[in-house]
C-alpha cells in the first residue's frame, strides 16, 4: 500500500520535472533555428514559480476555476496508466482506448474554463480547439485499430512486451503507416505549427488562454508539462519499443537504464515535432480539417487494412 503510493508520487514528480525540461528543450531548439541564443533549459520552471506566486486573481465563476483542475487531474491520471519502464502503478489496466480518451479530456477542460470567461476571443479559440479535436479523431481511430489488429490485444503493457521479441513496431510496414499518421496527430495535440490554430498568437491573442493569469496560468503550464511527457511516452511505448532492459543483474540498474532508454526515445519524438513546428506556417481551421480527413486518414486506413491481413 505504502509502496504503491510512493511509486505514484515518484511517477508524478518525475513526469513534472522531465516535462518542464522538455518545454525548455523546445524553446532552446526553436531559438537556435531562429539564430538566437535562447533561454536556459530550466526557464519554464522559473516562469511557473513566478506565475503561481501572483497575488490576486479575477475569477469568472465556478466553471472557470473547475475546468483547469479537471484538465490537470485528467493528465495526472493518464500518466499513471502508461507503463514507464518497469515501474507501473496501474499499467495492467491501461489499454489503448482508455489512454487516448484520457489524453483528450484536458482540451475539454480548458474549453469549459475559456468559454465561461466571456471574452469573444476565448470563445473563438475554444470553437477552433473543439473542431481540431473532432478532426484528429478519424486518423487516430484507424491507427489504434491497426495496432490492435496487428498485435491482437488492446493492452499497452502486452504490446510493449510483444515488441521485445518481434522488434519495434515501426519495422513492420502497416504499423509504419500508422506511426506516420499518429505523428501528424501529435502535432495537433502538442499545439505546434502547422496545427496550432487554437493558440494562434497572431490572430486571436492566444485563444483560450487570453483570460488566464496568475495561478490559473501556472496550473496550465504544469498541465502542459505533464501532457508533453505523457504523449511522448505513449508514442515511445507503442511504436518505438518501450524501455524494458534486462541486461544488468540488479533491478535498480535495470530500472534506471530503462528510464534512460525511454528518455532518449521521447526526446527524438519531441525533436521531430519541434523541427516541423519551426518551418511551416499555420493552417486555417477549415484547411486543417480537410487535411486531416484526406491524407492521414488514407494512410492510417491503409495501415489498418494491411495489418488485418
Amino acid at each position: 500500500m505504502i509502496e504503491t503510493a510512493l511509486k505514484a508520487l515518484f511517477i508524478l514528480l518525475y513526469a513534472t520535472f522531465v516535462g518542464f525540461m522538455f518545454m525548455g528543450i523546445i524553446r532552446i531548439v526553436t531559438a537556435r533555428i531562429h539564430r538566437r541564443v535562447g533561454p536556459p533549459i530550466y526557464q519554464p520552471i522559473l516562469d511557473t514559480i513566478k506565475l503561481l506566486s501572483k497575488k490576486s486573481n479575477i475569477t469568472h465563476g465556478l466553471i472557470y476555476d473547475f475546468g483547469i483542475l479537471y484538465a490537470v487531474g485528467a493528465t495526472i491520471l493518464a500518466v499513471m496508466f502508461i507503463p514507464l519502464g518497469s515501474i507501473g502503478v496501474l499499467r495492467a489496466y491501461g489499454d489503448l482506448i482508455l489512454i487516448t480518451f484520457l489524453l483528450e479530456i484536458p482540451m475539454l477542460g480548458i474549453m469549459f474554463a475559456a468559454m465561461s470567461s466571456g471574452n469573444p476571443y476565448a470563445g473563438i479559440g475554444a470553437q477552433r480547439a473543439l473542431l481540431t479535436l473532432l478532426a484528429i479523431q478519424v486518423p487516430l481511430g484507424f491507427a489504434i485499430v491497426a495496432l490492435a489488429e496487428f498485435y491482437g490485444t488492446f493492452s499497452t503493457y502486452e504490446i510493449v512486451m510483444a515488441q521485445q521479441t518481434m522488434g519495434w513496431s515501426i519495422f513492420h510496414f502497416p504499423l509504419l503507416l500508422a506511426a506516420i499518421a499518429y505523428d501528424l496527430v501529435l502535432q495537433a495535440m502538442f499545439g505546434k505549427e502547422p496545427f496550432d490554430i487554437m493558440i494562434a498568437p497572431g490572430e486571436i491573442s492566444l485563444g483560450p488562454m487570453v483570460e488566464f493569469g496568475g495561478k490559473h496560468m501556472g496550473l496550465l503550464q504544469i498541465q502542459h508539462a505533464i501532457a508533453l511527457f505523457a504523449e511522448t511516452l505513449f508514442f515511445a511505448n507503442i511504436f518505438l519499443g518501450g524501455g524494458v532492459v534486462t541486461a544488468f543483474s540488479s533491478s535498480i540498474l535495470n530500472t534506471i537504464a530503462g528510464l534512460a532508454v525511454l528518455l532518449v526515445k521521447q526526446v527524438a519524438v519531441l525533436l521531430i515535432a519541434t523541427f516541423m513546428g519551426a518551418i511551416f506556417p499555420r493552417f486555417t481551421i477549415d484547411q486543417a480539417a480537410k487535411f486531416y480527413w484526406k491524407w492521414p486518414t488514407i494512410i492510417a486506413a491503409l495501415g489498418a487494412v494491411l495489418a488485418s491481413l
Binding site: R32, I33, R35, R36, F275
Partner: peptide, 15 residues
C-alpha cells in the same frame, strides 16, 4: 525545401 532551413541549428547565433 523548407527542411533546408534547419542547417542554422549548427551555426553560431547572431545575437
Amino acid at each position: 525545401k523548407p527542411w533546408m532551413s534547419l542547417k542554422y541549428l549548427f551555426k553560431k547565433p547572431v545575437t
